[in-house]
Amino acid sequence: MDIFRTAWPDLVVQLDVWHFMRRLAVGVTTDTHRLYAAFMGQLSAAIFCWDKSDLNLLNEAKRQQLIQANITDPSDSDVSVRLDRKELSLHCRRMTRSTEVIGERIQAVLELFGGDSGRDTMGVSLFHERIWELWKQQQKHVECLQDPKGVQLYTQTGTLKKGGVVLPVYRCARGSTSLESFHLHLQRFIPGKIYLCSFLCVLI
């Protein structure tokens, strides 16, 4: 990366979260393991958190919907179980946790699925033994997962009313087709054998 910093001092290069997760997933015995989806979901939750203000607004909208459906005084658990991933992605912004918290949470996820909780009904472990070596190699890249400071990754495209509550509708640049196309452009633009498809690159 030193060559980039020298030639383009204002170029921010971040590691794409999905590609980072796939690096750890190499330590899984098979992606058809019944716990694979749960593991990847926990891994994502270890890296990202939802914007609290957006999440509170969505919870209130869902609560009002339940009240309108004649569910009196719905509890927090009643509300949370009815929130699906599509709604969260549509109305709530996500951000990366701090480097320290991500490291601690990923360690906890690996320890959880690396024990008895990581075995299926046949006793097959989710992980190969090399999962710990992979994690040791990837820990140094956790810092590269941070969202670039001062860069707006979300654009509000409109609003939607649910339960009488007006919710923002967001579009995220993270993981979008346009971003992947930008990776391809950079690979062609910068001379030499340079592979940038695994990185989120932002010109400040």
Rank of each mutant, 00 (worst) to 15 (best):
L196T: 13
F113P: 04
D16V: 05
V12P: 01
I3Q: 13
E60C: 08
D73S: 03
A38K: 02
F4R: 02
M122I: 03
H141Q: 07
F189H: 11
K162S: 00
R188A: 15
L35A: 07
G192E: 12
V13C: 14
T96N: 07
S198D: 15
G164S: 10
R97W: 00
A45S: 13
S44L: 13
R34S: 14
L160Q: 09
R119Q: 03
G41L: 01
E129A: 15
T155E: 08
V124T: 10
R23E: 11
L134R: 15
R130D: 14
V169Q: 06
K140Y: 02
L196F: 10
L15K: 03
Y154H: 06
R171D: 07
A61P: 04
R34V: 14
L126Y: 01
K161R: 09
V79E: 02
G192Y: 00
N59M: 12
R97K: 08
L179E: 03
G27M: 09
A108W: 01
V26K: 10
M122Q: 11
Y170L: 06
I102H: 11
Q42K: 14
G41P: 04
V81P: 03
Y195C: 07
W8S: 13
R119P: 06
L55E: 02
G114E: 03
V28S: 07
R105C: 06
A45D: 07
A61D: 04
D84M: 06
S80D: 10
K62E: 09
D76C: 02
W18V: 12
L90H: 10
G163Y: 05
N59T: 09
E111R: 11
G115Q: 07
V166E: 10
R119H: 10
K140L: 05
T30E: 05
